[in-house]
Design a protein around this nucleic acid. Structure first.
Lengths: 342, 342
DNA sequence: ATTAGCACTCGATAGGGGAGAGTGCTAACA
DNA sequence: TGTTAGCACTCTCCCCTATCGAGTGCTAAT
């Protein structure tokens, strides 16, 4: 399905105008605004053709045209050129990332915020699940009578911790010893490989201080459960409010609800995202609640770690800008990850 | 300024009706709904009086009355009886808190979410700053060539961490030794008392491995900076969308913007909140951006720790329910805190 | 193939009545 | 003197209609 040069130009003009103004575009407006060398009447004929082909639609008989989802799709596939962020913007981002940060999650959060601000859509970043990482160190720190803190550090610097109850009689030295045993037994294991069964057999082996070990293992298991899932960071939800398509509360509520329950977002995306930028326009999305929005997303990886990042906005979206920004940020993210996960 | 029994009853009826329906309340409606033994005409007279006194206002000549802010104030001060959550609700909350949780912040988050859900307003919890806490343990865990993880644990189980760069030549044993030295020097100090000067003098004392120590001290300082401020947790922002007063986008945006910048919220509240429930109605608030909303909040404390928690909603708020819920949750929170901060 | 001209369509906007809810006032009543 | 019924009045809400204008589709001329 290929369009001649003129139809492409017209389709592009309509899309860019409509995305900007959110109002149907008329034949006259196109000729004026984009300085085409053809008359409005000619444009009208072409527009009628484009409508027949399904790339445009008319809200009502005597309004201008708006792009259909098929129209956006054609534009995205065959016409669009990704628009990179300005050097200045990228410079700002680099500045942000230059600051020393607590951990990878904090960095990702910052990047997400920046993406949202840059594009004016809502951004999301799916962090890799922890399950592929290895335990480097495990420590038990006494807190006060009857409580200790279990700390686990993974090879990539992720820290997980949880307080556990211990008998008041256990001494600090005891705790250290137990931590040492646990570390010996668990070091180098991926969290995923540490399953209930394995923990059980280990407990038998370390019969001494059964109670503390029990609690510790329980805690480890829980922590693993918590971190076993991918984590989703979302920023810029407020940007939604600027889009006229959300003037109607019902829709807004639906979307915000969706985003609030972060976990659901994962299901919107394919299990494995490639490295290239994906675009899902409106009804192309599986999930009911996001059928009238668009997703622009991609995957990132660096070594073992892989995650996803993307933008969510109205169907009437600046795809060129979203895709361009995403591509640049994807590169930057992989760069930064190298620093955090050697 | 005291009102006779009948006026009070009428004012209360109007407030409860208006809060429920968000529409001006007429004389007839009051008599019918609340089964008063007086006629609509009498009510009208009383209403005219109440309006003269400033407790009611009329949106326009021939509509019903709505409570003025002064009216709400009178109600809150002199008529209202706090309405406690049902036993069932409190039971659910206890169930939630029974689950073992990562740390105090996670608990507070849960409580906040519950508050929001219970009342259908937005909730906030201000966590005590970390500065009053003491360092229990400090550890350096090697991650990989050239990186180590600095871990600080405070007496109440708060874990702060940060990766630092180290020379590749430093061994694990060295790290442990340095951590030990640092711990010795810092143990028992409150974060607030560890100021730049003190860190400097300490560095001289520990001249060996200057570079690592330097990095570690830098990191400690940064971590302290990050945690030196009170932290604000907000939940249930979505609840705002249900209130008809936010049908107009502009206002909604303003409020959400306010809540997004969590830090600002602190400035809305008095420096030190007492233990009783405070209510700030509309214009009683200092901060411009929250002049057409109401705050219901209180302080909590347990030992050294003190923070605030509260609800934010429209002026047309179920104060009785908000205040009652808050009071119950305050008690619960102090209970739970005992467990976390012995 | 392109363009100018023109009739036609349809949403958006403004103005003009009711309809209905609620008030304030007056006069009668206990 | 406080309470009540009755009634005229006010103001919003909603529906109906007329008008306006942007934009189309068609036709005939270039």
């Amino acid at each position: 399905m290929t369009l001649d040069e003129r139809k492409r130009a017209i389709l592009e003009s309509i899309i860019r105008d409509y995305v900007e103004t959110a109002e149907p575009v008329g034949s006259r407006a196109i000729v004026k605004k984009h300085g085409l060398k053809i008359s409005a009447a000619t444009v009208r004929n072409e527009m009628a053709d484009l409508e027949d082909m399904g790339y445009l639609e008319q809200p009502h008989t005597s309004a201008g045209r708006i792009p259909s989802e098929k129209g956006y799709r054609y534009y995205v596939d065959c016409i669009m050129e990704k628009e990179k962020p300005t050097d200045e913007d990228m410079f700002i981002l680099q500045g942000l990332l230059g600051e020393h940060m607590r951990d990878w999650q904090a960095v990702a959060q910052k990047i997400g915020q920046f993406m949202a601000q840059l594009t004016n859509y809502a951004s999301f970043i799916v962090l890799p699940a922890v399950r592929f990482e290895q335990i480097t160190s495990l420590q038990l720190v006494p807190l006060n009578e009857g409580q200790a803190l279990l700390l686990m550090v993974t090879d990539n610097g992720l820290v997980m911790h949880r307080t556990i109850e211990i008998p008041a009689t256990v001494s600090k030295a005891d705790l250290e010893q137990m931590a040492e045993s646990l570390t010996q037994s668990l070091r180098g294991k991926t969290l995923a490989s540490v399953r209930r069964g394995e923990l059980r057999s280990m407990r038998d082996e370390l019969k001494r201080r059964r109670q503390v070990i029990d609690r510790a293992l329980e805690a480890i298991e829980q922590v693993m459960g918590e971190n076993g899932d991918d984590k989703v960071l979302i920023s810029g939800i407020l940007n939604m409010l600027n889009e006229p398509e959300f003037k109607d509360m019902e829709m807004l509520k639906r979307v915000l609800k969706l985003l609030e329950e972060e976990r659901h977002l994962k299901h919107l995306l394919p299990l494995k995202a490639g490295q290239e930028v994906n675009i899902r326009i409106g009804r192309e999305n599986q999930e009911e609640s996001v059928r009238d929005m668009s997703l622009v997303f991609t995957g990132y990886r660096s070594g073992n770690e892989e995650g996803k990042l993307g933008l969510i906005g109205p169907v009437r979206m600046e795809y060129w800008k979203a895709a361009g920004s995403l591509e640049s940020i994807q590169m930057m993210i992989e760069e930064v990850m190298k620093k955090y996960f050697t």
